[in-house]
Write a protein that binds this DNA or RNA. Sequence first.
DNA 1: CCTATAATTCGCCATATAACGAAATGTTAA
DNA 2: TTAACATTTCGTTATATGGCGAATTATAGG
Lengths: 117, 117
Amino acid sequence: MFDFLTVVKALADENRIRALLALRDGELCVCDIIELLDLAPSTVSKHLSILRQARFIDGRKDGRWIYYRLASDKAPFQVQEAIKWVCDSLSKDDTAKKDARKIKQIVKNHAKKSCQT
Amino acid sequence: MFDFLTVVKALADENRIRALLALRDGELCVCDIIELLDLAPSTVSKHLSILRQARFIDGRKDGRWIYYRLASDKAPFQVQEAIKWVCDSLSKDDTAKKDARKIKQIVKNHAKKSCQT
DNA sequence: CCTATAATTCGCCATATAACGAAATGTTAA
DNA sequence: TTAACATTTCGTTATATGGCGAATTATAGG
């Protein structure tokens, strides 16, 4: 029951849901999600740690950056089911669609910056 | 997104989860759930109204009593999926098992009382 | 009609949570 | 070594939420 509540409570926040959905199409670094949600870095970091603790996402460190991705296959079954449920429920959601577009833009700019180095 | 958050937040409380699971085997009146959760009537009433607003449960008035049941078939698809997810995730949960036993006892006593009238 | 009972609404309080900024940590690059 | 950057941790603050009791509504029964 406790574990389950950790999972549900991790989903009980709009910004965490948006972050989760943003990771559907692949990994993103924290600063991408900061840009997407337009929140303070510390706030986003907290949200991501809550999602990670509930086993929704996994982090991978690469230099200064930390890339987060959906934990899909490694996650407990109940978490996998939760991810499916969230994605299905919000597949046509307006905010989610807008976010998907914005993420593409962010990643594109991100790539440009990287190429400049 | 707003509707979805209403649904998730309705699940983000242990007592509401317990109430929801208690209704798996059929309808119960508010006083049964009060006895199960051992909380003040006003608190339970609030919890049930939150579950009802999220479309998890339906109420039926019969005299002085109000019987609640899972809204399964009438509920939006995302809610139906949520109910399945919760039930699957907690099918082997200790608290849920204890509650199931307690509910049987409560209903049994309830029946006795009714027979006395 | 009056009382008891079931349930809800309302107002209050304590705790939980989300947000921020400042400071700390760790890493790259000058 | 220093400076800049990405991220996290910590402390604070405002708001949200869960809990209760008192008052309210509605119904059943004496």
